[in-house]
Design a protein around this nucleic acid. Structure first.
Length: 117
DNA sequence: ACCATGACTAGAA
DNA sequence: CTTCTAGCCATGG
């Protein structure tokens, strides 16, 4: 983990962006997984908030590859247009049905296990 | 300062 | 499977 402090600060957002940018094409992860990777395991909500403000982040953050722990596209209503999240995922070969990633378990990318070698 | 609201989650029933 | 609870903490009224 990067930040053992367990406390969110300005760096937290940048760290969330960095991790999210490492998500490979065609793979997805969850808010909680990113939070855990940063040492703020119980603050998945803050990861969600970070995604909310990630629209202005540069380089771009693939926020569409971050969903909740069930594989549900809980953040689709924050995209313009709302359907763009699903279409981007489909474009990467990810199957989505009823706002949920079908093979979520198989394409799940855990930053704690695969980001830091 | 107090209170409500979330792109959340783990655990319990 | 569903529903509920508690923990989380930045933001805004």
């Amino acid at each position: 983990m990067i930040r053992p402090s367990g406390r969110a600060d300005e760096n937290f957002f940048e760290l969330v962006y960095e991790v999210a940018r490492q998500i490979p094409r065609g793979r997805v992860t969850s808010y909680g997984a990113i939070a855990a990777c940063l040492g703020t395991k119980s603050s998945a909500r803050m990861v969600g908030w970070a995604m909310n403000t990630s629209h202005s982040a540069k380089p771009k953050v693939p926020a569409h590859r971050v969903v909740n722990r069930s594989g549900l596209l809980s953040g689709k209503h924050h995209f313009n247009p709302p359907g763009s999240m699903e279409s981007r995922l489909r474009k990467e070969g990810i199957k989505v049905k009823d706002d949920t990633i079908v093979n979520f378990r198989e394409i799940f990318w855990d930053p704690a296990k695969e980001f830091f070698p």
